[in-house]
Amino acid sequence: MNREQRISDENETLLELWRQARAGDKAAYCRLADSQYRTLFNYATNFTADREVIKDALQDLFIHIWERRQSITIQYVSIYFLRALRNQLLQEFRRSKRTAWSVNVQDAGYLTDFRTVETDIEQGEAVSEHRRKLHQAIGGLPKRQQEVVFLKFYEGLENEQIAEVMHINRQSVANLLFKAISTLRGSLLFSLYTLLFLLYFFVGNRPD
């Protein structure tokens, strides 16, 4: 859930790290990257299911921004990185015909094979299965709706900020959200059952 990290992710703190990074402080930059990594990685899963592709893309992104740091002005750190990542992913997608890109990000195609990958071994298969179902509920949405759902509910952005990240206008954001919510209502995402299930599972399977 990563809450502790997110608490410390106040923009001011991040901007201070960015200022240090701009002055050449690599450690500060690594911390900044660390603070953004989880969100950026998870955001990228909206574009491709290939984890190694995402990791490489993020390495490229961070190095690219580091090299250009003198000429970059950042006002809102997480939005800057989300937007930069999105641009980079789209560019890479246009350049390559790699099968890794499971979706055509330009079309609002349906993502039917959204596979989740086990990240935490200790959590076992049942939770993964459950997670897969959760992800399916989102994965059944058209591509851009998924992205809006991520930015709205995972990242907690305002519609205006979402519009900025996705290069669309506010009304489009509102429309996409409306459609996504209508579909998701009544899905697992809103259900009490999932919570009880997870609680039961986590409590019952604590290592010690």
Binding site: M1, L134, Y154, L189
Partner: peptide, 23 residues
């Protein structure tokens, strides 16, 4: 509350250890 919780679970695709390695 469930929506938030579930969105986080659904999207959390990477472990802290992996992030550490990448950093």
């Amino acid at each position: 509350g469930q929506l938030l919780e579930n969105i986080y679970r659904a999207y959390d695709q990477i472990s802290s250890r992996e992030i550490g390695e990448e950093i």
